[in-house]
Design a binder for these strands. Structure first.
Lengths: 194, 194
DNA sequence: GCCTATCGTTCCATAAACGGAACGCCAGGG
DNA sequence: CCCTGGCGTTCCGTTTATGGAACGATAGGC
């Protein structure tokens, strides 16, 4: 019986809310609170949450909701990521020719934008499948020269230049010459309700 | 003793779990799931959570726990902060017409690059003094239309366009029309060796 | 000594997040 | 046509996160 539980598959991704994660988040909150000279009662009052909730969170015996986390992070003046995400490396997508590290995701109303740090290795071409309609990619090259864009109409982008294209069809990334291309890639997604 | 409710103090921080935040997170999850070609049922199974939970989350009718968020972020391969529009602790520079938030600083050999998230408010023009020689700015506009660049030769940049200029002289930023401009700004500095 | 204030923890009823199951819907195959 | 399988949503009983209140502990004022 080679059943693989969902939990096992999750472990493969390395992201689970464990007792250790809970305790770590709790200790971090307690430390940040201490640095600001706030008592538990005071922080709970300011954040508009119960003392019991904060106490349980700090001692790692609770599994807080997004609402609670927002309230605490807001009062401590830190991003949520500082409370939750272990200092582990950002997820990096490795392709045949491209390494992309997701640096930031921001949302403005009906649009979300992802920022990637991109490295294109020479000697290979990477083709990405179409994204959803309305998705646009913006590339700014810091070093090297790249050939990027829709497979039907690629563009050559040299150091210090930018390019953008609608990525609702297959598109490719390649480095020209034998130096890797360093670039930033912004991907704009309309948040369609579909 | 000036009484201020906890909710008011939180609003001042601007960090609360609102219906909008919930809906936004839901749409984002749905989009990421779609991009990976996963059905709701399949993602729920892999993440080890109930379909009802995921459905409710995607439609913004739930206030998920850290455990649930971890499971989903792990399966989607994104940092947890990407799902919750993270309150930014990044330093923000506020000017007369421009708000600039420093998102990232890269260093590649002899060049350092700063990435800013830029908002240009309409109705004002902001002039920045010259930077050091060799500094180049790259602007990508996501919404609105901007007039930017050296005061002697400004450029008009509409939604979805880019512009770049050498900023070794005074340069200006302004929004055209009455909607704010949302953009990303990359500033490349040669590391002056003196 | 007492009284009060505040600290962090614990108790507890309520609200709500959870997952399993059943639902209606739609596309494909027999 | 019916039947099956997968889809996303809704229903619903169970689990649990929540905040108010009570608790013991500690510190300072009188």
């Amino acid at each position: 019986m080679v059943e693989r539980s969902a939990a096992e598959e999750q472990d493969a991704q390395g992201n689970r809310w464990t007792a250790e994660a809970a305790a770590g988040t709790g200790l971090l909150i307690r430390r940040l609170r201490g640095e600001r000279g706030l008592s538990l009662s005071e922080l709970a009052r300011r954040a508009g949450i119960g003392k019991a909730t904060l106490s349980g969170l700090e001692t790692g015996t609770r599994n807080p909701t997004a609402e609670t986390l927002y309230a605490i992070a807001g009062q401590l003046g830190v991003p949520l990521a500082a409370l939750l995400s272990a200092p582990e490396a950002a997820p990096t997508v490795e392709g045949e020719a491209v390494s992309a590290k997701l640096l930031e995701v921001f949302r403005d109303g009906a649009v979300s934008t992802e920022l990637y740090r991109l490295t294109i290795r020479p000697g290979a071409v990477q083709v990405s499948p179409a994204h959803a309609p309305g998705v646009v990619e913006y590339l700014t090259v810091f070093s090297g020269t790249a050939r990027v864009g829709p497979v039907a109409a690629p563009q050559v982008v040299a150091t210090g230049e930018h390019a953008s294209w609608v990525s609702d069809g297959p598109h490719s990334y390649a480095a020209i010459g034998d130096v890797p291309v360093e670039a930033s890639l912004l991907i704009r997604h309309p948040l369609t309700t579909g």
